[in-house]
């Protein structure tokens, strides 16, 4: 029974995640259009709601071109790594507390591993392999440059990301993501306890997901398309999917760690039936993730791309010391109060 429930949970989460990815692309296109005083895709279906379907169908029927001098097995492997890594991160994110369905108590999280945060860190670190291998296997200088930039960028930002997470671990004294959410009941959101950690972590998430101020691996004006220059059809589609799935999991993790996850202040004491409490909690989580995603989209059209040296400066001279200072200060405060 346990296994069956887990399988159903995986199926549901995957379906929801993939649909969200499709619609995130649409939302991004529409919001970008609004910001640029345009209308955006509004032809397919009611107000353009079927646009993602059309996009995917188009990618399906495109020709799949592999460059003659590419390393074929690796060229094929790279998008698979990218997509597997980005989809499996969601497994440890709790999107609600517990729900009673048909007499079973179901925990709204696929896997409550006790090293949840380490799992997340490990997988985001793995994600760079997809990009770096894609860059190398394409046998194209622009792709290679994109892959190299991605490696350097992720190494530099993973550091400050990991160190800002230490602040969270110090405060909550657990590595388990659902425990961290439980810690943040009421208004004890970690963004209020760890504002500096939140900023460094959030910036690192931008860098990890290759979002605009840090999208150097695929900087169109300089590198054509970066690591996915030589990809067409569904393989390109997989990279695209991985990128947007990364955005969603990234913001889900930001919400879980700093914005209180599924916690809705004062909900537990309001006396609502338990079933509705759970539903509202899941809704809260979705709303928070949506807000963070919208923020990421708006930032894309606000902040121009960093130059490469500025990126490294910001990573090593600013974010890293800041996050280390944050850890030290947090540790001192905790030591003083206990």
């Amino acid at each position: 029974m346990e296994i069956l429930i887990s399988l159903i949970k995986i199926l549901v989460v995957m379906l929801v995640l993939l649909t969200c990815v499709a619609y995130l692309v649409l939302v991004e296109r529409r919001v970008s259009a609004f910001i640029q005083n345009r209308i955006g895709p509004n032809r397919v279906g009611y107000k353009g709601l079927l646009q993602p379907v059309a996009d995917v169908l188009k990618l399906f029927i495109k020709e799949d071109i592999v460059p003659k001098l590419a390393n074929k097995p690796l060229h094929r492997l790279a998008p698979i790594i990218a997509i597997v890594v980005s989809l499996s991160t969601i497994a440890v994110v709790p999107f609600g507390d517990k729900i009673n369905l048909f007499g079973y108590e179901i925990k709204l999280q696929i896997a409550s591993v006790n090293i949840g945060i380490l799992y997340v860190l490990a997988l985001t670190g793995l994600g760079v392999y997809g990009i770096a291998i894609a860059g190398w296997a394409s046998n194209n200088k622009y792709s290679l440059l994109g892959g190299l930039r991605s490696c350097a960028q992720i190494i530099s930002y993973e550091l400050s990301m990991g160190i800002s997470i230490i602040g969270v671990i110090l405060v909550t004294s657990t590595l388990q993501l659902d425990k961290i959410v439980e810690f943040q009941h009421g208004w004890r959101w970690l963004i209020l306890l760890q504002p500096i950690g939140f900023i460094t972590f959030f910036v690192a998430i931008f860098a990890e997901t290759n979002r605009l101020p840090f999208d150097l691996p695929e900087a169109e004006p300089e590198l054509v398309g970066g690591y996915h220059t030589e990809y067409t059809g569904l393989k390109f589609g997989l990279f695209f999917l991985a990128e947007y799935a990364n955005m969603i999991t990234g913001s889900a993790i930001v919400v879980t760690l700093y914005l209180g996850g599924w916690q809705f202040p004062y909900l537990q004491s309001s006396g609502l039936p338990e079933f509705w409490t759970s539903i509202i909690q899941v809704g809260t989580f979705a709303a928070k993730v949506g807000a963070v995603l919208l923020f990421m989209v708006i930032i894309r059209w606000t902040v121009p791309r960093f130059r490469y040296d500025q990126l490294m400066d910001l990573g090593w001279k600013f974010m890293l010391p800041l996050s280390i200072a944050n850890v030290i200060v947090t540790a001192f405060i905790i030591y003083l109060f206990e």
Binding site: A33, F34, N37, I299, V303
Partner: peptide, 22 residues
């Protein structure tokens, strides 16, 4: 950076509600 980014976001968000040219 951060106060400047917030200022920039104000401009971007304002643009969203201006009339469209399409």
């Amino acid at each position: 950076y951060i106060p400047e980014i917030i200022k920039g976001m104000k401009i971007t968000i304002r643009q969203m509600f201006l009339p469209k040219f399409t």
